[in-house]
Design a protein around this nucleic acid. Sequence first.
DNA 1: CGTTCTCGCGCG
DNA 2: AAAGCGCGCGAGAACG
Length: 654
Amino acid sequence: MIYIDFETRSEVDIKKSGAWVYSLHPSTEILCMAVKVDHTDVFLLKPEQFDGSNTNLTLFNCVNHVKSYISNGVLVEAHNAFFEKAIWHNIMVKRYGWPEIKPEQWRCSASVAAYHALPRSLGGAGKILGLSTIKDDEGKRVMLQLSKPKPRVGGFFEQQEYPEKFQTLYDYCKSDVEAEYAIANKLGGLPNRELKVWQLDQKINERGVHIDIDAVNKSLKILGEYSEKLEKELDILTEGKITTVGQRARILEWCKERGEELPGLTKADVEQALKTVEDAKVKRVLEIRQALSKTSTAKYEAMKNSTAPDGRIRDVLMYHGASTGRWSGKLVQFQNLPRGSIKDMATAIKLIKQGSASSIEMLTDDVMGFMSSAIRGMVCAPQGKKLLVADFAAIEARVLGWLAGSEKMLNQFRNGEDLYKDMASNIYRVDVKDVTAEQRQLGKAAILGAGYGMGAPKFYETCLSWGIKVHEGLAKTAINTYRQTYHHVRQLWYDQEKAAHTAVRTGNRVECGKTIWFMQDDFLKCQLPSGRCLHYYKPELKMKQNDWGESIELSYLAEKMGKAFRNGTYGGKLVENITQAVARDLMADAMLRIEDEGFNIVLSVHDELVAEIPQQTALQNPLERFCNLMAATPNWAKDCPVAAEGWEGINYKK
DNA sequence: CGTTCTCGCGCG
DNA sequence: AAAGCGCGCGAGAACG
């Protein structure tokens, strides 16, 4: 195994453009590369040494050895390998003529850390694992300094001028490789199945998602014109006291001065206030706040910054981004695109491409809403191709029913019954055929919300935030009805909590339904039906005083913003973790099957898959095949009622 | 002036 | 038997 780490510099902001666009830019340069071969000492190469010159004999031999190892297929590990891959392919190979490293040779220590539910960052993982080779803050500071142009004056810090800074950088680079090695030593690699999943993740990330960049540019123009207009109005309206809609404190203060006191400025607060506010100016300010608070502009900016010359954005999926194993998003976060309400996306995009705010204003008075709705459509199939999109139907509810062994719920899904209506009929004690649309809404909220132990007060709040009519008594009835109807689910909360506690207390292996809890090294592990494990680092049981008395709480070590803290957990939460994790495993399995059959996956959004295929294909009915592959269950979930449905088109939409 | 923290918002 | 959960990003405020 070879461990590597690059330090680079560029005019491009990697945070904004992503590693791929960064690595393609002509201003991007390698400052140094640290290499460790197995357990031998780390050595450092500067660019002028990449061809073997300017070195002593030892280093010269090292260079040649590493090149031949790589050509012979040795494994290469990096921390967040996508970055090293991009630099390798676009700079080491293209500029310096080094051999390509094949996809199957790469390993990533960050993905291993993430698999263990540890911090993804090198420093964070090293720190929480108690490794001695932790990152030095001074080194990091210097790295950040040397990696980008000097503030204001421009130009880079050069080695001749700042030899000490460069020495700090070289040491930092070498220590990063040592830290990477230490983490790899401590945690090992991914289990075989997960290695396959990670390799697929990399394939998808390298393929990228295609963007209609012309439409993005036109959208930015429209958004710019329109928000400028509204901000000007805001400025005039408030006599310069408020200049942007993000000025939370100023807005609240200004409203108060005019006799309209708001509890806050959340979406719901503003909606509520708009109903009652008398003052016309306050009303207009809130309207503008509402219109411009949409995150759409930022999304379009992010797309523009990260789209490569070939029209694709790469590295938008983060493997095992959530502790449950779900993917999370990067750069343009494609996991939280607004659903939008545009029916005819193709026509909407055509309109946007005409590029004028006024023509959209003629169509709708909610320009920002329209632009926000159109974001999904920026993702599109390139020339000659089309998108296949499919999603799992109510996957978490199905998995929960399956894990809990609730025959009632499983049969409802197998028979294609409407669970929401049935739930409503039980809550309101009316016949299923008499359930009103409004009653069904509450039934739906209960099915979606009550599965992980939510109590009546929280359920009441949740319903309100979803705009569902409810009162405290009704919320209580709904929660009780859910717990009675699906009592196996409730039982699962208690069983999982007990099993986890027992495993921590005794160190024994504890089977619980379809999962197995056990301790290994410093982790409490929960083995899922797929064989993958959930991880809880350094678990502890402690007495805790609650509203309802004293009880034993399970907690584990987590990290946020570089700070370690104990995260308490309990039955409902564990069941949620397991359910989400199993749904993710079904997705990962589907992805492997689908990619294997020649569909090119470009996005995965928890329960939804987007793939590209040529418009002309030999396949009879590609969409049907796609959905069938997605809904097929692996051996470990044979009796889990999974269903998928989809559509095909040029522009992505909901 | 740059970094860190918090809040709010979008999705599942 | 009481507790919904999982993310990332942008913007402003707070901090140093």
